[in-house]
Simulated assay, not measured.
Amino acid sequence: MFKISTFLEKTNEGEESYASLDDSLKLREIFDHRKFTPEHIQMRITIKYNNQVVVGFDVPSGLDLWSDYMVAIEQYLDGENVERLYGIDPYLIKLVSINNNLLEFSIVGDWEPVEVFAQAVLPEKEFLESILDGAEHFWETLIDYKVFEEKEIGKTTFGEEPKLMIEEIEKLRKKVKTLFN
């Protein structure tokens, strides 16, 4: 069983630099802070599998990590082994198919010698579904807090982005069910 958690970076200095996506008081402080911008959200994502830490707080944080996970899943479902940037720093997320029901997941540094921050062999379908659940929880929380309302960037309303991301999650979820049932 997977437990996926998202933590957002607080904009003020203090005892804790991250707040759980499930801590409504701290989230409200983050979203109401004058320096907060929804265009690029600094976050940490933790992953536990059967109470074992796969991705912990020692893995570097990054901007818009849920988008990175979703693109990685889409590439993986298209039959590719994935090696793509994780956040904006020189880190890579890798998804490699091992067999019909297992994948190797890792987050590594993109320099020599390669530093491995996370690495595990995981059940493929359950991992993909859990990641999509975590992404959906993130985007639904931003909708609930009306984080994107009244933001306009270019020709489109930025407020549409969370809804578009949830639609993309649903497409990926259907693809997972089709491929693994």
Rank of each mutant, 00 (worst) to 15 (best):
Y86R: 08
D68Y: 15
P113Y: 02
K48W: 04
G134C: 03
L95G: 00
F138R: 06
Y49Q: 06
L77I: 14
E16D: 05
E168R: 13
T178R: 09
M70L: 14
K171E: 10
M70H: 09
R173Y: 14
E9L: 15
K26T: 11
L103D: 05
R28C: 08
L122G: 02
S97Y: 05
R173A: 07
N12S: 12
I143N: 03
P60T: 02
V121C: 04
P90L: 00
I93N: 03
S24I: 15
F148R: 00
D23Q: 07
L103A: 06
M43I: 08
N100D: 08
Y91M: 05
S5W: 03
T178A: 03
F138E: 02
Y18C: 05
I4A: 01
A135V: 15
R44S: 09
M165E: 15
I88F: 14
P162F: 01
K48Y: 08
S67E: 12
L164F: 11
G87I: 12
H137G: 05
L65Y: 11
E129G: 12
Y49L: 07
N50M: 14
E150D: 14
N99E: 10
T178V: 07
L142S: 06
N51T: 12
F117T: 00
G62R: 04
K163I: 14
P113L: 03
K151N: 08
F138M: 06
F138K: 06
L179R: 08
K125R: 13
V82M: 02
L132A: 03
L132Q: 03
Y76A: 01
I45L: 09
D110Q: 07
A120N: 01
L65K: 04
L122N: 02
M1F: 13
N51C: 10
K151W: 14
R28K: 09
Q119W: 03
D78I: 03
F158V: 07
A120E: 01
L122Y: 08
E83F: 05
Y86G: 09
A120W: 03
P38W: 01
E9F: 15
Q52S: 07
L102M: 09
K35Y: 11
E29A: 05
Y18F: 15
S106K: 00
A135S: 15
F117V: 00
P162K: 00
V147L: 03
T141G: 02
K125F: 11
G56W: 07
F105Q: 00
L122M: 09
I47K: 10
L132P: 12
D68M: 11
D78Y: 06
E83R: 08
Y145E: 09
L142R: 09
T157A: 11
G109C: 08
E112C: 00
S97A: 11
S24N: 08
F180K: 01
F36I: 06
K177F: 13
E126R: 12
P113A: 00
G62I: 03
G79M: 01
W111R: 00
I45Y: 01
R34H: 10
F36T: 07
